[in-house]
Design a protein around this nucleic acid. Structure first.
Length: 594
RNA sequence: GGGGUGGUAGUUAAGCUGGUUAUAACGCCGGCCUGUCACGCCGGAGGCCGCGGGUUCGAGUCCCGUCCACCCCGCCA
């Protein structure tokens, strides 16, 4: 057995060596980051979790046999080195935290070799994501991912400490649970013991956390995995992690204040950023009017301008007809946008078209004049709206979307605003923009079926003053729901729940869910509401999204150790995969040929 | 389900309007080198050009299909 394992334990993190440590004996263990062989002297950069340090091998300090081993070292070999920490004999390397010192080796052990690497273990790797995901265990050696993983761990620790300090009780809720086909598709798990029946993996612990309020725990939290079998995006994975909480005897303000505290604790602890509390709150209606989206990036202004009234008398036929038919004309003044080329403006038109808008009406302002397609329709009223109300100046670009479907125009304009915010560098990437969006509508109409569906979920409590509207004008019902948005990304959402069995029935009725169906799907919850359910509400944070914002990652894949592709597959394990016929038979499952 | 971008040595890329032996960098292998730090120098190996079909005298290049990765729309109570 190696003396390095039995006798000499690892003494220092490679990245932690400093000039003050000179003279000490160090035992380092880690990976060969780079080899510089000069014949008589060999340098390696030895890397571990903590960083890299230079190790020197030469015939004066190292025995002949170990020197032969040193000559054979290659990238990513795993080694142990014993030696003396010294001030560097050569020049210091200012690029390294350990750049003033080196370890002059007296003993060397090669623990393991490595095949040539599919890509370099470096800060900047230009390997395709496909390659990185296949060799994720190597990708995770790279410093940016290592830092993200460690920050993620710290974020979870801060959350736990915060919730503990606030008197929350941590729970585990079932992973094998009941399918609730409302909402997202479930991942199903067949039951062997009860053939022909299925568990579902939870889309969220929603019902369990409400039940725990009925059980009287008052403050619940959990950092838990959730599963949704839907199509993926940069910010969506089939399994993702949620910080889930629920509280009794609270109103929306209590929950938001509690969430504010957790956010502040994380940003202070991990980014040294003091979040001004309370985080500002706007209603859904305000968000949609001012920003066109329910997840506004509030790091910049460029708020939307509603031209619908002006458009009614406009000479521009598109505006006039849309305004006359109850549609919406909305847009914004992009400061500095006049510099865009025709090609760039055309690209913006294509951008809004992806959201279903017909096109983009625009005019530039230069030398005190309007130019561009909309210019000849700028009448006195529009000129006042642009120059006076919106503060349009020389060098600016005004862009408008008109659509008979107000929500199409709003969404297109809102997304365009976000797009332009980045394109025009209106956002400082080191800044964070926090906002709560509240009072979401209870229902929206399903485009396909024409039926009402719950915008959040059917357990969301309506605003008490809107209760009568449930039966008369349900689309007007607002809820005690709230989303927290950071940098234009929804990172959490929740609501006060219904704790009154009668109100719950009214909501099911509005949704067209009968008593029988409600009982079959959510019977246990409805029953619980009948046994002394306290007023309660809560929230769930998308932990992956939160960490991605904290580390500045573009995709949550970069903060998940073993993420899946947009086809919901794991390139490393090659899951999902086929299974033996015996396994299927035992479950009573047969496959259908397509 | 729809739209877009990409797939060429181990890796990342170049390869024009189809035309000799498909380039380069890094990595890999061999040799030299005692102060480098992305060490350097000399030499070498390495390719089903994603896969299948088609057009053509000739296809990495053009056409059709298909698979994979990523981005977006739909979807995500």
């Amino acid at each position: 057995m190696s003396r390095f394992i039995t006798e000499w334990k690892k003494s220092h993190g490679a990245g932690e060596l400093r000039i003050e440590d000179a003279g000490q004996t160090a035992v380092l263990m880690g990976w060969v980051d780079a080899v510089r062989n000069h014949g008589g002297t060999i340098f390696i950069d030895l890397r571990d979790r903590f960083g890299v340090a230079q190790v020197v091998f030469d015939g004066a300090s190292l025995g002949e046999a170990d020197m032969e081993v040193a000559k054979g070292l290659r990238q990513e070999y795993v080694v142990a080195v014993r030696g003396t920490i010294q001030k560097r004999a050569g020049k210091p390397n200012p690029k390294l935290a350990t750049g003033e010192v080196e370890v002059v080796s007296t003993d060397l052990e090669l623990f393991n070799r490595s095949l040539p690497m599919p890509f370099q273990v470096a800060d900047e790797v230009d390997a395709k994501e496909e390659t990185r995901l296949k060799y994720r265990f190597l990708d995770l050696r790279r410093p940016p991912l290592r830092k993200a993983m460690i920050l993620r761990s710290e974020a979870a620790r801060l959350a736990r400490e915060y919730f503990a300090s606030q008197g929350f009780v941590e729970f585990d809720t079932p992973i094998l649970t009941k399918s609730t086909p409302e909402g997202a598709r479930d991942y199903l798990v067949p039951s062997r013991v009860n053939q022909g029946t299925f568990f579902a993996l939870p889309q969220s612990p929603q019902l369990f956390k409400q039940l725990l309020q009925v059980s009287g725990y008052e403050r619940y939290y959990q950092i838990c995995r959730c599963f949704r079998d839907e199509d993926l995006r940069a910010d969506r994975q089939p399994e993702f992690t949620q910080i889930d909480l629920e509280m009794s005897f609270v109103d929306p303000d209590d929950v938001m204040t509690t969430a504010d505290g957790m956010i502040a604790s994380m940003f202070a602890g991990l980014k040294n950023v003091e979040v001004p509390l309370p985080i500002p709150r706007i209603t859904y209606e305000q968000a949609m009017t001012r920003f066109g989206v329910d997840n506004p990036d509030v790091r910049f202004g460029m708020e939307l301008i509603d031209l619908t009234d002006l458009a009614k008398t406009s000479g521009f036929q598109v505006f006039k007809s849309v305004a006359g038919e109850g549609g919406l004309v909305t847009g914004m003044v992009a400061s500095g946008g006049a510099a865009f080329s025709r090609k760039e403006v055309d690209a913006l038109t294509e951008f809004v078209k992806t959201y279903g808008a017909g096109g983009l009406a625009w005019t530039k302002r230069a030398d005190g004049k309007f130019t561009g397609p909309l210019a000849k329709f700028v009448d006195e009223a529009l000129e006042k709206a642009l120059l006076h109300d919106a503060g349009m100046k020389d060098g600016d670009l005004a862009l408008f979307v008109a659509d008979r479907d107000a929500s199409v125009a709003r969404t297109a304009a809102g997304r365009l605003r976000g797009h332009l915010g980045n394109k025009l560098s209106l956002v400082n990437p080191d800044e964070f923009g926090f906002i709560w969006v509240t009072d979401f509508p209870m229902f929206e109409r399903d485009e396909e079926t024409g039926k009402l569906v719950a915008m959040h979920h059917p357990f969301t409590s309506p605003n008490s003053e809107d209760l009568d509207l449930l039966s008369t004008d349900p689309l007007k019902v607002k809820t005690r729901a709230y989303d927290i948005v950071i940098n234009g990304q929804e990172v959490g959402g929740g609501s006060i729940r219904i704790h009154d069995r009668k109100v719950q029935s009214q909501v099911f009725e509005a949704l067209g869910i009968g008593e029988e169906e409600a009982g079959r799907k959510f019977g246990f919850l409805l029953e619980a509401l009948s046994y002394g359910a306290p007023p309660h509400g809560g929230l769930a944070f998308g932990f992956d999204r939160l960490v991605a914002i904290l580390v500045g990652a573009d995709s949550i894949r970069d903060v998940i150790a073993f993420p899946k592709t947009t086809r919901a597959a794991c390139l490393m394990t090659e899951a999902p995969s086929q299974v033996d016929t015996e396994q299927l038979t035992e479950l009573g499952i047969g496959l259908i040929e397509k």
